[in-house]
Amino acid sequence: MIKPACEDAYLIQSKDLRNSYYSLTFGSFSKAGQCRPGHFVHVQLPCSDVFLRRPMSVASVSRGKKEIEIILKVLGRGTRMMSDLKKGDRINILGPLGVPFRLPRRSQTVIMVAGGVGFPPLLYLATEMVAKGHDPVLIEFFYGGRSAGDIVEKPRIKKLGLKFHPVTEDGSLGSLGLVTQAVEEYITSRKGTVKPVMYGCGPEGMLKATDELGRKYGVGGQLSLEAPMPCGIGICLGCVVNLRQGGHARVCCDGPVFDIGEVIL
């Protein structure tokens, strides 16, 4: 288990990705090099209006430079204030936290199922896999949103050389429908020819559908869950989920990454 740092970091870049999405890069974070795909950081804002920290998954790191990037969508007070941060502003970061993704074998076909603001950890995972020599054409990156505006950072994802499949509910970009419908079509069309592994992150309904697909077609893999979590280190017990084998797990420290079929979603 990595010992997390609890220290101040400074905003060095804020990019408006449009449609309420922002990419924030923080520097001077000593544990940047230890943030793996699937890890999250717990961010404390320098104001008293937002009392608790906010968990943010890591979208990329620049190891030598001690920089980490998070990508957020403005959904409430905390994310609003984060999007308003200016270059040089200080925040306090606790992390890296949680259990990261298990990287697949290099020869494996990988299905990524990203929904809305759930895409950053999968972007990091795909980037890391490619950097470690995973053939990008084996990565099927499904990315769903309500409409074209919800699919952000397209050039960056495509640049990895992977197979990019945008899916929108209104058909304004890529195929029409839910991302999990597109994934199911892919799985059934390739049945018997490939044995893929699946990684998912996104809204609750998408995770539930992905988990069902995994169990229905015998496709293993991992899902990264989201939950409001006061502490992020396993001491408040506020973020529990029910396990299929019975009992509870804490999303913050037993997860946020769980195996398909492990959690009752």
């Binding site: 008293s48 009392f51 608790l52 409001p228 408040c236 017990l237 973020c239 509870h248």
Partner: peptide
């Protein structure tokens, strides 16, 4: 096991919890 989630909520300068003695 305690109460079902949500069992914490942020408030002004504080928080509410009803973990339920898990």
């Amino acid at each position: 096991l305690g109460h079902p989630v949500p069992r914490t909520a942020e408030t002004a300068s504080g928080m509410l919890n009803a973990i339920g003695l898990a």
